[in-house]
């Protein structure tokens, strides 16, 4: 019997299958070399998901922007700026400060893209550079407080019912985003604007507000990830967000979201993140040197997209 899968679910199914393949291949490797199967132990998987939650939250925000056919290159330093400002303020105000930084950066990005109509590719890049400059200027003359506050440590490191709190945060963000995409008018507007902004505008959607909203969500997600990462590494530091930009884009696209906007399901992004996190952990179990990791990483993205990410040929 031939299983039929709706076209929009194909990436999700194939990516899930690949996740299983990675797990099996990794387990086969560890069984043959060490005679154990750490990849299949719940504790190990939870630990991987805990470190994956930072990427997962970044990718969730990035997906909002990619659904519009835009991109947010300011994620690295939004994350860093939120974390560094929050730790500098410290105390009970740390979390609101981080979120405030996220909202402010998102509003700025949204303003540039929606109202000034500057391509997001270059505007968010500029914002990223400015944020980096601000952080260098802020930390250069003196050393502001950079240790994580107790609540950050709790969110990133503690466990609740045997499960890391960070995973709950990731799950919470995921639930909110998934509900928003499928159950609210804003979610619908997001897809409509991403498909064809002109048509969305003519049908009465305030497309500029939608764009601003998406960028705010993206930046707020980055700042939440910044808070968690600060808690996880016990301090905020320059460049802490650099490792998240490209994997976040890759995760969103591997999950079947179209890079030109309008198509994609949140569950796909979730699986994309799990895929990248597991791939990384299997490669580190194999003690693959950085060169091999990069090559495999790139080849996997190309290979997966060749299977299900192909565009229509232009014929008219």
């Amino acid at each position: 019997m031939r299983m039929s899968v709706a076209p929009e679910n194909r990436p999700i199914v194939i990516a899930s299958l690949f996740v299983v393949v990675i797990l099996l291949a990794g387990t086969a490797y560890t069984l043959s070399t060490a005679g154990s199967a750490p990849l299949l132990s719940p504790n190990y998987l939870l630990q991987q998901l805990q470190t994956g939650s930072f990427l997962g939250i970044c990718a969730a925000g990035m997906m909002m922007v990619i659904l519009l056919g835009q991109i947010d290159l300011s994620i690295p330093w939004t994350l860093t700026a939120a974390a560094m400002t929050a730790t500098a303020v410290g105390g009970d105000l740390a979390l609101p400060t981080a979120l405030g930084v996220g909202i402010a950066v998102g509003l700025l990005n949204g303003f540039g893209v929606a109202y000034l109509r500057i391509p997001s590719m270059i505007f968010t890049l500029g914002v990223d550079t400015v944020l980096r400059g601000l952080m260098v200027a802020q930390t250069g003359g003196f050393a502001p407080q950079d240790t994580a506050t107790p609540i950050m440590l709790f969110l990133a490191k503690d466990k609740l019912l045997g499960i890391p709190v960070a995973i709950f945060v990731w799950a919470g963000v995921s639930l909110l985003i998934a509900l928003m995409l499928t159950r609210t008018g804003f979610g619908r507007s997001l897809y409509a604007t991403g498909s064809r902004e002109g048509a969305a505008y003519l049908s009465g959607i305030r497309t500029k507000w939608v764009i601003v909203g998406a960028f705010v969500i993206s930046s707020v997600c980055a700042s939440i990830a910044g808070v968690l990462l600060t808690g996880y590494s016990a301090k905020a530091y320059q460049g802490m967000g650099n490792a998240f930009l490209l994997p976040a884009i890759a995760a969103v696209v591997l999950g079947g979201t179209h890079i030109l906007g309008g198509k994609g399901r949140y569950i796909g992004t979730l699986i994309g993140v799990v895929l990248i996190v597991l791939l990384n952990s299997v490669l580190s179990i194999m003690q693959m040197p950085e060169a091999g990791r990069q090559i495999i990483y790139g080849s996997v993205i190309i290979g997966m997209l060749l299977v299900y990410g192909r565009n229509q040929r232009v014929t008219s």
Binding site: I249, A250, P289, Q294, I302, L306, N311
Partner: peptide, 21 residues
Amino acid sequence: GRIQPIIATLATGAIAIGLAL
């Protein structure tokens, strides 16, 4: 392959860095 340039080159960029390493 009919993959969007931005995402295709994101991947091949990783491959290029790997080869360089």
